[in-house]
Amino acid sequence: MKDWMIDFAEFAREELPAESAERLIGLLRPAIRLSAAEDGEIVVGRLGGLPKLPDDMAWPSLADGCRPMSFLAELDCGELARYEVDIALPGTGTLLFFATTDARQSQVIYVPHGIAVAERPAPDDHATVYAELPLAAVTEPSWPERDHPALVDVFGSLEEAEERVWHHVLDEDTGETFDQQLTLFEDGGRDGPPHQVGGYSDGLQSPIEAVAAHAAGTGWYGDPAFQEEARQWVTLLQVAEDTRAGMIWGDGAWLIWGIRKDHLAARDFSKVHLSVQGH
């Protein structure tokens, strides 16, 4: 068993019946959690600041070209390659994330290693310049939310997963359930906003895999086409609101970029799906 799995596996095996615990552990995916870099830590990317773009690349804007997007984040794929994750990121180069100020439209740009780049000032005041926040990384376990399509593949249905895992009663006297203990386990391991690369995103409404599959026109839960399409999607980046960078989108919203596995393998970032999820 890999190091990043051990704590969660011990927790699940202690709290759940053996069969349910092993099914849940089998669903774990390694995610790269991003946090503000301290002195001496390896910097794997940043929030905010100004983007470094090739000279011949225009600043991303809306389709009409009249309103520029805001630069949100940069990921250094070469540095991220040090960390285990469940998605096939490029081994080198950088990923740049832009979005409109309402975070309803976005563009992701991959700049291969060796391409000359230079810091680019914002074209006008329609593009918000966020405070720069360097990011460090660590691999951590991630597990599916209780409405994730992956649960259907392992438990047969969301209802069966609810019964076997989240609604499993740990204490008959108090009525305490596994779901309550899982929340405590999760909160105890976090420090700062949950920025993340790969793994299961923290969908506040619906998992990015479900949102993207539905947007592709495959229906919803219960439709085999939906289930198959959801399997093709992964989390590329999750950015939570972070006051240190001045990133506040209202109602506690998080931005989650999903991408199909085949598009990621082809280094085609033109068809990512951005989901804005708030409380």
Results as ranks from 00 to 15, higher is better:
residue 274 L to K: 13
residue 142 S to A: 05
residue 124 D to G: 06
residue 267 R to P: 00
residue 73 A to S: 12
residue 190 R to S: 07
residue 54 P to A: 12
residue 220 W to T: 15
residue 26 G to S: 08
residue 215 A to P: 02
residue 1 M to P: 06
residue 67 R to V: 14
residue 75 L to D: 00
residue 46 R to L: 04
residue 69 M to N: 04
residue 227 Q to R: 05
residue 68 P to F: 02
residue 132 E to R: 04
residue 151 L to H: 09
residue 3 D to H: 11
residue 220 W to F: 11
residue 112 P to Y: 10
residue 139 T to Y: 11
residue 257 W to N: 00
residue 47 L to C: 02
residue 222 G to L: 13
residue 126 H to R: 15
residue 189 G to T: 00
residue 147 D to K: 09
residue 86 D to L: 12
residue 86 D to A: 14
residue 131 A to T: 14
residue 247 M to T: 07
residue 196 Q to E: 03
residue 211 V to M: 08
residue 230 A to F: 07
residue 156 G to D: 09
residue 27 L to V: 01
residue 273 H to M: 08
residue 125 D to N: 11
residue 234 V to W: 01
residue 165 V to G: 01
residue 94 T to S: 13
residue 108 V to M: 11
residue 249 W to T: 02
residue 93 G to M: 08
residue 125 D to T: 10
residue 175 G to Q: 07
residue 224 P to A: 08
residue 90 P to H: 13
residue 207 P to T: 06
residue 122 A to C: 09
residue 217 G to V: 12
residue 123 P to W: 02
residue 206 S to D: 14
residue 89 L to I: 13
residue 92 T to L: 06
residue 170 L to S: 05
residue 70 S to V: 08
residue 205 Q to K: 14
residue 257 W to L: 05
residue 85 V to G: 09
residue 34 L to T: 01
residue 134 P to A: 10
residue 113 H to Y: 05
residue 176 E to D: 09
residue 132 E to M: 10
residue 52 K to T: 09
residue 13 R to Q: 12
residue 14 E to C: 03
residue 22 E to G: 04
residue 10 E to W: 02
residue 43 V to H: 05
residue 106 S to L: 06
residue 158 L to Y: 04
